[in-house]
Design a protein around this nucleic acid. Structure first.
Lengths: 157, 157
DNA sequence: GTCATTGCAAATGGTTTGCATTGTA
DNA sequence: TACAATGCAAACCATTTGCAATGAC
């Protein structure tokens, strides 16, 4: 099932052109990487998984190319990189703002809708002068499942 | 200048005894590591920096011992480990709850007082069932200095 | 004496880099 | 043709692990 479409194609072109900005070049590798990134949608892909997805169609594309393209996209302001504990950094499109609730035990990630945190980021921005328009927030706690799986430390609390 | 004191000594003993809980043993290495951790106060030390601090007095204490002790302290519930972007994870005492505002450019870290985030964590706890009593929050944005240092990309976006 | 802890070296996982080659512009 | 991007291998950083030696109990 091809998840592609005209909309995505247009988006791919737009992103690639932003990469072109400072005398960059459009290669099949970069196109494939951006396509895979878009196809992943809301999934949290790390560089390895992205490379695997790309290599399904273009086996010769090297992991280091993926890293270099991700870097370029980050510099171009297209992507945000974020380290969510273990398993490698994950990447998001800068225009798709959301935040993360991460289980410190199993690593499960839940997306937090931005409106829940906007008052906090506003306050932080006011207090500390940080630019948080594109802020990424990671909250680490323990998910329900892992909480239940805990040895009976129940009395503590 | 010994930053130590009776208070700290008592705290060191208390922490070491928590490590002893399940047939653990008290070694000079562990004591030195816990002391260094307490002496660091609010600083955000990573394993490397902690090892350096310890080795100033006990040169033979190996980095891997530091890692193993930090692990043990985490398991014992004394410490929380947290990855703040680059440069290795940092550790905090679990009873000293605070959060972090991290500059995505220069890595500068500002501590966020817990009361600013409590309403958010409460809401997240309610919505997603995560246990956030000991939550750690990392907000990544751009600090004032880096913001000023940015090339005039102001029109883009 | 037992066995947890340590030192050390080597392995690991994620990421970056140097360099010769490829391929876009 | 010129030079950005790539493949590849090697380097790199933070962290973990196997194993024999040490030292706390």
């Amino acid at each position: 099932m091809t998840t592609t479409g005209d909309t995505d194609d247009a988006r791919v072109d737009e992103i690639l052109s932003r990469l072109k900005g400072s005398s960059g070049r459009l290669t099949t590798g970069r196109r494939a990487i951006v396509q895979a990134l878009l196809a992943a949608g809301d999934h949290h892909l790390n560089a390895d998984e992205l490379a695997a997805a790309v290599q399904a169609q273009h086996p010769h594309i090297h992991l280091s190319t993926v890293y270099r393209t991700l870097d370029a996209l980050e510099v171009a302001g297209v992507l945000d990189r974020m380290a969510l504990g273990t398993g490698g950094a994950v990447y998001h499109f800068t225009d798709h703002v959301h935040h993360h609730l991460v289980c410190k035990d199993c690593g499960a990630v839940v997306d937090i809708p931005p409106d829940l945190v906007s008052s906090l980021t506003g306050e932080l921005q006011r207090r500390f002068g940080y630019d948080l328009d594109q802020a990424r927030l990671a909250v680490s706690g323990r998910c329900e499942r892992c909480r239940a799986a805990l040895p009976t430390t129940s009395t503590s609390r």
